[in-house]
Amino acid sequence: MISFDYISAADVESALRAASTPSSKFIAGGTTLIDLMKLDVERPTTVVDVTTLARRDASLAAVSELPGGGLRLGALAHMSDVAWDPRVRDRYPLVSQSLLLAASGQLRNMATMGGNILQRTRCSYFRDTATPCNKRDPGSGCSAIGGFNRTHAILGTSEHCIATHPSDLAVALAALDTTVQVRGTAPRSIPFADFHLLPGAHPEVETTLRPGELITSIDLPAVSFAKRSLYLKVRDRASYAFALAAAAVAVDLQGGAIRGARVALGGVGTKPWRSHEAEAVLVGKRATEATFRAAANAALAGARPHKDNAFKVELAKRTLVRALTEVSA
């Protein structure tokens, strides 16, 4: 960890001003940033604390109603608060479940919505400054390709990066056509599908957030069938572990037929992995295991496994089949 300046922002405008230098970072819960600063992976010279913004505008840390039946998750709302919010639990079970299956109780009490969707990969090569990593040090090479890559992505990879996006919440959000509200020089809305980027030739650029922009909320649209939703996470140990495979699903079932479906996968993608391919297979079909298996095959059709993570292809399929089976039961 290098020496850095700490600024506590009084309001959004001063936060944006303070964060206008290239080597500055916003900090909220700090559960990712401090961790990576200790490892010397993140080296901000200025850290702008935005948790203080909620004193002036409580909605930044709250769950509030949106016109039309959606919910706005304040960027500074803690994972635990959102997870246990009765409206979230009632209308978006998959969001609540994705939060409760993530991290640990202590981390969930600190980490925020905005920070969660910006968390960095757990790729061990990214986290180790002694090894090449295109995401951390552009052009240095990818150590995971040809290295130990059991936990790495099989979807959305490139020849430059195969790091898995670690967030559970983001997978649930990807399934819901969420919108990310940000403040920069001007406020703007970013559809969730456009928020995270595939690594391509530039794995160091992970989102479409511009330098100095601040997330203010994540807006969940009204999805009539989101009540019938599920986040299923498969991991090595029963708690406090990242997903090997996860599925966020919602289905609109009418008399055994699927009228609408949302499918996103976690633990397997370089970004939160919405699968329109799986949804296309599901819609209009009977909710049977054969249908679910066909959807899973469609979702993983583009999978590109590496040496140690080939098992994830079948595991992700089975996870998705199980999630669809349970949510349709």
């Binding site: 002694a130 090894t131 150590s143 040809g146 290295g147 130990f148």
Partner: peptide, 12 residues
């Protein structure tokens, strides 16, 4: 304990 088979770095 995972070790990188090229560099010997401890990975986890």
């Amino acid at each position: 304990t995972h070790v990188d088979m090229r560099s010997g770095r401890y990975l986890n």
